[in-house]
Design a protein around this nucleic acid. Structure first.
Lengths: 337, 337
DNA sequence: TTGTAGGCGTTATCAG
DNA sequence: CTGATAACGCCTACAA
């Protein structure tokens, strides 16, 4: 049976008030009292009960980070940075993965879950915006959207300019002389906003260069996985004329696509150039190393944690949008000659 | 101001007890009462306060998973499986990364942290065993050790047989005719148990085959990262005679080492064979694909969650050890001819 | 500077 | 089957 504040008070012959003062940052406690209390705490091996403290103060000191899949490198690298940024300001992070399951997203958003022991929600969503608004409406849980854009200014979000990112990637392929540019990553059924935006950027870049969009060059991917990149890549290589470049909506898709190119007996970048988005560590060591659009996960993590803490402290704050920077990183997979 | 149980009771003209019964799915409630209460809940948009419930019941419904680095694929794949396994039994998972920081490990273990809002700890440790015993001693927090071995039977753990895993990997290299077998991954300073065990397996396999251990073929790595694998690989390739095989203590090290081989103008597996441990997804798509020892993260996740829940329910349970299976997966990076 | 008492929102005990 | 009431452990006006 763990010791409580009352036990310590009895043991030290002082009031609970004094013990509490000592425990939670000294505010005017005499030296005699303090040592007496500390001794009692030590003897009883007392630790404050965080749940009771939470009930009283209304703060759990915990944030939730919700991502589609934690084992996708982009999200695990983001999680790493979020955990670190949160730790710096005294918060811990609960992670949940929705696994492309709308129902699980909905439960978190509506607060329907029975274990919502956190002060705020960092949400990297699949759902489209209108659905989101309806779901979250009733709750008062502070919420920051990650990686999204254009939510009518009704929510805080730390966004990526997905249209520009895709445009930069495809623009690079065009600059290096490729003209038959395929893409992998648009969504088969649902209208998720990230792939929609990246599709828009792809189309815009082609239009800018006066290159026709060939519908057969646009291959969908249900998940942003290596496996889906591989099968999409195989499909593209069977086309005639064969693409001379592939823009993948994520690095993971790109790794799969590159492997498909090799298995077809072709070379990257000589026969087919490949570029991704995310800039995960893997791409620096893959063969060939992967050209990509680098998204600044540290920036996203820091800003979103900063922002949600502001909002927890003042729920009335107006919603803001912060756009994280991105930049083109040229490596071997799009080299010329 | 969110509605409370009392508000609902007043609104529905019943006692708090009845409302509580309805909310927590108690069976013996008359149909009349139930509908009346549900109506009131709906009108007031009432949601139970999880913190109050937790204070009363002593359960948070949350587990903590502590790993060195969440962005290391092995750990993020493990986290994925742990989150899923926990969700199946109604638990959520808080993730913390110690980043090779002993102090952070200690805080979690001693319960010194001020936000320990979880019912049990799944711990993938860096510390050696005696340190661990001393730290955790006082706390009553249920604890399961992951991936470790040989803790005197004083703690529950879901172990990997690291000695056998390393031995199998090196044995495979020997069977395929390699004789100058280097290793990357022993630790430079501290005596962490996982690398110690893998070193032991490496040495044992060489001894089994009557192959001499050359000290210069043993290269340390501070972290199990691609970067460290790369620099270790470079160092090995400069030796004379050059190794014809490299056993890496993790897949990540292996990816770095393979890249070093290519950058030196050599080939994998023709000039140098490479094998890792972990079997992360990346190794199925890398070029060449990576031979490795597959660790069953699903098994580890399921068993550790099952075990910690048993222990939460009955803290008096005797400690048990479960050893997760592993198996050799042969791919291109160790092929012959 | 320190003590007393009330309440955070829930569940559990004990009557009825 | 339902109602009143006491904890759960802590923090903080308010009082001394």
């Amino acid at each position: 049976m763990p010791a409580t504040l009352r036990d310590v008070a009895e043991r030290a012959q002082v009031s609970m008030r004094t013990v509490s003062n000592v425990v939670s940052g000294y505010t005017h406690v005499s030296e005699r009292m303090r040592t007496k209390v500390l001794a009692a705490i030590d003897e009883l091996d007392y630790r404050p009960n965080p749940v009771a403290r939470t009930l009283r103060t209304g703060r759990t000191g915990m944030l939730a980070l919700v991502v589609p899949e934690i084992d996708v490198p982009y999200f695990s690298e983001l999680a790493r940075d979020v955990i670190d940024a949160a730790a710096e300001v005294g918060y811990r992070v609960m992670i949940d993965q929705t696994g492309h399951d709308h129902e699980r997203e909905r439960q978190l958003l509506t607060g329907e879950d029975r274990t919502m022991l956190f002060d705020g929600l960092l949400f990297s969503p699949l759902v489209t915006k209108s659905e989101l608004l309806d779901m979250h409406g009733a709750t008062r849980m502070p919420l920051i959207l990650l990686g999204e854009h254009d939510f009518d200014g009704r929510y805080d979000h730390v966004a990526i300019d997905n249209v520009a990112a895709a445009r930069d990637a495809v623009g690079h392929l065009i600059e290096t002389g490729r003209t038959r540019i395929a893409s992998i990553g648009s969504q088969p059924l649902e209208e998720y906003s990230t792939p929609l935006q990246r599709s828009a950027g792809y189309e815009a870049a082609l239009a800018d260069a006066g290159v026709d969009l060939r519908p057969e060059y646009v291959v969908t991917a249900a998940h942003y996985s290596r496996a889906d990149g591989y099968s999409a890549g195989r499909a593209l290589l069977a086309l005639d004329p064969r693409p001379d470049a592939i823009f993948c909506f994520s690095d993971l898709l790109a790794f799969g696509a590159m492997r498909a190119v090799f298995d077809a007996g072709l070379r990257v970048p000589e026969d087919v150039a490949v570029i991704g988005i995310d800039d995960v560590d893997e791409g620096r060591y893959s063969r060939p190393s992967l050209s990509t659009i680098s998204l600044d996960t540290q920036f996203i993590a820091r800003e979103s944690v900063r922002r949600i803490i502001d909002r927890i402290e003042d729920p009335a704050l107006p919603a803001t949008e912060i756009v994280a920077p991105h930049k083109l990183v040229v490596r071997e997979s799009t080299a010329v000659e």
